[in-house]
Amino acid sequence: MSLRSPLSQARGLGSAKEGVGHWWAQRLTALALVPLSLWFVFSVAHYRIADYATMVAWLHNPYVAVALVLYFVALFYHSALGVQVIVEDYVANEALKLSAIVLVKFAHFALGAAAIFAVLKIAFGA
């Protein structure tokens, strides 16, 4: 006999109330990052993006701009999830752990927003 209510079983969120959400998001972003990372690394290497004109011309291509925005969304999300696990594993003090995770999330969202805004600013013509 199970002591769990039918609603609890249907939600499947377990005692931590979050189920497999973090695990699943980490896997999906990982899957997205496989082609996006390879494309990014080899593009930057191939076009030798070291001078301003090449960089701007590269980002003016709409396919490049969209791919780079997708890359940054997946990358910063995946990075935030990964660093959160590291903090959870090694920081024992609950208050410190919670503050560190909040800081990690805020920093990743801020950096991700800045990086995506920079791409869009150049893509739209600055």
Binding site: L75, F76, L111, G112, A114, A115, A118, I122
Partner: peptide, 11 residues
């Protein structure tokens, strides 16, 4: 990722 963001922001 700090440096990656700095790279596109510098552009």
């Amino acid at each position: 990722t700090l440096f990656l963001a700095a790279w596109v922001m510098s552009a």
